[in-house]
Design a protein around this nucleic acid. Structure first.
Length: 594
RNA sequence: GCCGGUGUAGCUUAGUGGUAAAGCGACUGACUUGUAAUCAGUAGACCAGGAGUUCGAGUCUCCUCACCGGCUCCA
């Protein structure tokens, strides 16, 4: 560890908790810059009350209560004062104080949040760090001097509840980023700009994939090109499920509230449902397919010989998401899932979850997407969950075993389980590295009991089935949103809304271009025709911006030879080939199954 | 839902109290083109919606809606 960099007392502090020295160094740098920001804010607003100011991925933030909302001009002024503090090269001075002394100190400065924090710290002492006239409660570690923190930028202002609880007061949060070198800072800012170009909301509009309208918040319109992507994903998934023992059903979208009372959604999920009244009855749009599938299972006497019974459904679902959380395709109110409910015996859980994890791996491999698994288990307060704690223990253990049996890395998160059971979620990142949940495998010991579901086992006894709720894409909407960003809009041939575009050199060869277009269309390919009175360069530019995989240039030479000059989206001019040869090639590329 | 911001032509933006602009796109015409933008012309906006202040509002105030960045919550 560079001794110049760190505070003497901090050199041994916590380094072993980090995967590398660089991570440790970045942690200190970010945490220290957060203190510098707080010191600058205190100069401008002496009455500020500080919350917490931790380092985070790529930067840091500090939460604070201020007399008025911050403006972008404030950020510039804070940055200016931070640069002064950096230039001064103030030393980070660590001290250990008795709690009494700390309480007195922060009380005299009306730092209510710090007092709350001190009271929550075990032991008799706390540590503080001082840079010049700014002293903060802090466990450390920090860099030696503020001059280490040169390459920073404040990035945004946001609101955040004190201690993350929406019943607590909302503080103002300033986000910033900081790096060891100027180049790294610039690279980081550049990468963010680049990532914004891949934003699915921007590309969705530019590529005519989907649109939204203020009269239907949270409900995307799928335009012709987006609908091709949507339906292609549906078709490939259906084909795979059909090969893997699933049957598809279509249940109603609108149900009497009694269904949801029975399922438990009325008690636990009503706030997220669209509910209305008709004929003195209360109805709800289904937010999930599971209750309908429970009715299908319960509609007749079932035998163990029917299990596993895998009911798939892609119906439209509605969830009332709070207005502030809607976002593009990744958080919507109306969507479809590649949903299925698998009814099994308790003995079949391990094998079924194993098989499912295999399907998941197969699908995601097709897109080359990276992901991680999260095992969500229940929290400490069992009253939030339905059913016997012993059943929960069993369910949680079975999911962990299946992950381990498949050699999959996962993290366990307490308190994230559904009210009816634990689950394995699959997380992926969008282009800005924000994480989203896609696939999910949820064990459920509760819902079948609520619906009184039974099957007759091999001993002619009645038994209660276990249900697995599962989706591989998650929702089509969110999956496509992620996929657009993953490919930056340049879909592979099998998924591309337009697989090839025929471009005529001039009007003289427009007839031949049209002939090629009709020939390819008749072969079942998705083709567009551009015979505008424009230069070939302009047509290529447009097709390239539309991210069409193949441009087929047709001029006099090609008409003569019954050929097309192929230009690849990725590789440029590939020369002329016979029409039939091109058809064979593109069909080979479009031939695809999970 | 909460905090902050934004909303001007299909898209990207200019316009800070006095007659709504530009580029791209669209349309029309000319050009007939060989691998990322040919030229010219035309049309297109009650400035998100509503209320108010003012002689006068895209511009100031208030309310509503949508969107963006976060928080909380979740496919």
């Amino acid at each position: 560890m560079a001794e110049e960099f760190l505070n003497d007392q901090d050199i041994a502090l916590g380094v072993e908790d980090f995967p590398s020295e660089r991570d440790y160094k970045l942690h200190c740098l970010r945490h220290s810059t957060s203190h510098i920001m707080a010191a600058a804010v205190q100069q401008i607003f002496p009455e500020v009350k500080f919350g917490i100011g931790p380092p985070i991925k790529n930067g840091f933030y500090y939460d604070m209560q201020l007399p008025r909302p911050l403006t972008p001009e404030d950020l510039a002024e804070i940055e200016r004062r931070m640069r002064e503090i950096v230039k001064e090269g103030r030393e980070f001075q660590r001290e250990t104080w008795d709690k009494e002394k700390a309480l007195e100190f922060f009380r005299s400065r009306h730092q209510d949040f710090k007092i709350e924090l001190i009271n929550g710290i075990p032991g008799d002492t706390v540590s503080t760090y001082t840079i010049g006239d700014f002293t903060d409660l802090c466990a450390g570690p920090h860099v030696r001097r503020t001059s280490e923190c040169k390459h920073f930028k404040l990035t945004s202002i946001a609101g955040a509840y004190w201690r993350g609880n929406e019943k607590n007061p909302m503080l103002q949060r300033i986000y910033g980023t900081v790096w060891p070198t100027k180049d790294e800072l610039e690279e980081y800012l550049h990468n963010i700009e680049e990532a914004k170009k891949r934003d699915h909301r921007k590309l969705g509009r530019e590529l005519d994939l989907f649109m939204t309208h203020e009269w239907a918040p949270g409900a995307p319109f799928w335009l012709p090109k987006g609908t091709i992507v949507y339906q292609t994903l549906q078709r490939k998934m259906r084909e795979m499920l059909a090969r893997n023992g699933y049957v598809e059903v279509k249940a109603p979208l609108l149900f009497n509230k009694d269904l949801f009372v029975t399922s438990g959604h009325w008690a636990h999920y009503k706030e997220n449902m669209f509910v209305f009244h008709e004929d003195e009855e209360t109805y709800g749009l289904k937010p999930m397919n599971c209750p309908g599938h429970m009715l299908i299972f319960g509609s007749k006497r079932r035998s163990y010989r029917e299990l596993p019974l895998r009911l798939a459904e892609e119906s439209v679902l509605h969830r009332y998401e709070r207005a502030g959380v809607l976002s593009g395709l990744t958080r919507v109110r109306q969507f479809q899932q590649d949903d299925a409910h698998i009814f099994i015996t308790e003995d079949q859980i391990g094998e079924e979850v194993n098989n499912l994890l295999g399907l998941v791996a197969r699908v995601y491999k097709a897109f080359g997407m990276s992901y991680r698994f999260v095992l969500s288990v229940r929290g400490d307060d069992h009253s939030n969950y339905m059913g016997d704690p012993a059943l929960w223990d069993r369910a949680e253990a079975l999911l962990a075993q299946a992950l381990e049996a498949n050699g999959l890395e996962y993290t366990t998160v307490k308190g994230e389980a559904n009210f009816y059971g634990p689950k394995i979620d699959q997380m992926v990142q969008d282009s800005l590295k924000r994480e989203h949940q896609l696939g999910t495998i949820q064990l459920d010991f509760q819902l079948p009991r609520n619906f009184g579901l039974i099957y007759v086992n091999e001993h002619n006894h009645e038994a209660i089935p276990v249900v697995i709720h599962r989706a591989i894409y998650g929702s089509f909407e969110r999956f496509i949103g992620i996929l657009i960003e993953h490919y930056a809009g340049a879909f592979p041939v099998w998924l591309a809304p337009v697989q090839a575009k025929v471009l005529s050199i001039s009007e003289k060869t427009a007839d031949y271009a049209r002939e090629v277009y009709e020939r390819l269309t008749a072969e079942g390919l998705r083709v567009e025709l551009d015979v505008r009175d424009d230069k070939i360069g302009a047509k290529i530019r447009d097709a390239q911006l539309e991210k069409v995989p193949f441009m087929l240039i047709t001029g006099a030479k090609e008409a003569e030879a019954r050929a097309v000059a192929v230009r690849s989206r990725e590789r440029g001019d590939e020369g002329a080939v016979a029409i039939d040869d091109f058809i064979a090639r593109i069909k080979a590329e479009a031939d695809f199954d999970y």
